[in-house]
Computed example of a mutant assay.
Amino acid sequence: MKSFHKVRPELREWILATARAGHGVPEVLRLLKEAGYDAAQSRRAVSEVLDLPLSSLNAVTPRPSGRRPAHPQAPAVALDDRAIRVSISVDSPTLRVLEGLLTPSECDDLIEAARPRLNRAMTVDKDGRQQVDAARTSQGMFFALGETPMIAALEERLARLLDMPVEFGEGLQVLHYLPGQEYEPHHDWFDPSQPGYSAITARGGQRVASVVMYLNTPEEGGGTGFPAIGLTVTAMRGSAVYFAYETGEQASLHAGLPVVRGEKWIATKWLRERSFKG
C-alpha cells in the first residue's frame, strides 16, 4: 500500500481539484483506495487538505466503484415516439425536471393497477428493516421488476433514458397522498455510518439516483421540495424529477410536500450502482 507522512503538493492539488469538481468525500476516499493508498492515512490527508475534523471521516466508507446513470443534458430527448423535455436543469445536486415522460393513459393505468394493493408506506430503519415512520404518512405499494408489460415498458424507457440496465433499478413504488399527508425532508441514499448499511447494500450496492414520476396533478400542494437549493418541483401529470447523489450528496435532501387540496399519486424508481436482481 502507498503511504504518506505529509501531504505532498501534487496530492494536495489532486484532492482539492477532485473536491472542486463536485466529488464528495466518500468518492475521494474511494479513488485514493483504488490508487493504493492506506485508508487511515487517506482520511488524515483529506482531513488536512479539506480542513475537516478527522473524527467526521472515521465513519465514512469509500463508495465502491459502480455504474453511474447518464444525466439527460439536452433541452429535449427523443425517445421512441415521444420527446421528453428537460425544463429545469441543476448541477449541484444533479437534477433534471423531465416533461412528457409518461402519457396520461400510462399514468391512469399505473394508478388503477396500484390502487388495490396500497398499504401504509414504510421506510428503512438503521438496521435495514422496514418500519412505519411518522415522517411518511402516505400509502404505497411495490411492483416487481417487469411485473407487467406496462411496468416492463416503463422500466426499459428509464433504462434507455439514463443508460442504466433495467436490473440496476429497484421495483417501482407507487405512492398515494391525501390532503395533509407528506414525506418530511430526507435523503434517499443510505448512510454508511449506520449499522445496517452493509445489510441493505449487500444486494445492489448504494443508491445513486431517484426518479419521482407524477401520475396526477394535485389541486394544490404536493410538490417535491429541495430545501438546500430553494427549489420546489411542481407535481404535474406525466412529468418527473430525476436527481442523482452517487457520492452521498447532502444537497439532494428533499421532501414530499403536503397535499393541500385534492390528492397526489407518484411512482418512484430508485437506482443502485449494481444489479438489484435477487
Results as ranks from 00 to 15, higher is better:
Lys2Asp: 09
Ser3Tyr: 01
His5Leu: 06
Arg12Lys: 15
Glu13Arg: 10
Ile15Gly: 05
Leu16His: 09
Ala21Glu: 06
Gly24Ala: 13
Gly24Val: 00
Glu27Arg: 14
Glu27Cys: 10
Leu31Trp: 06
Glu34Arg: 12
Tyr37Ile: 00
Asp38Met: 03
Ala39Asn: 10
Arg43Leu: 02
Ala45Gly: 15
Glu48Asn: 04
Leu50Ser: 02
Leu54Thr: 03
Ser55Cys: 06
Ser56His: 06
Leu57Gly: 10
Leu57Cys: 08
Ala59Ile: 07
Val60Ser: 09
Thr61Ile: 15
Thr61Phe: 09
Thr61Ala: 14
Pro62Tyr: 08
Arg68Ala: 12
Gln73Glu: 14
Asp81Asn: 15
Asp81Thr: 13
Ile84Tyr: 02
Pro93Lys: 05
Leu98Tyr: 01
Leu98Asn: 01
Glu99Lys: 09
Asp108Phe: 06
Asp109Glu: 15
Leu110Glu: 04
Arg115Lys: 12
Arg117Asp: 14
Arg117Gln: 13
Met122Pro: 00
Gly128Ile: 04
Thr137Glu: 11
Met141Glu: 02
Leu145Arg: 10
Thr148Gly: 04
Pro149Lys: 09
Arg157Phe: 01
Leu161Met: 07
Leu162Met: 04
Val166Tyr: 03
Glu167Ala: 13
Leu172Asp: 01
His176Leu: 00
Gln181Thr: 11
Gln181Gly: 12
Glu182Ile: 00
Gly196Lys: 05
Tyr197Gly: 05
Gly204Ser: 07
Pro227Val: 06
Ile229His: 07
Thr232Glu: 15
Val233Arg: 04
Ser239Gln: 03
Tyr242Glu: 02
Ala244Val: 01
Tyr245Ala: 03
Glu249Ile: 00
Gly256Tyr: 02
Ile266Cys: 09
Thr268Leu: 07
Trp270Gln: 01
Leu271Asp: 03
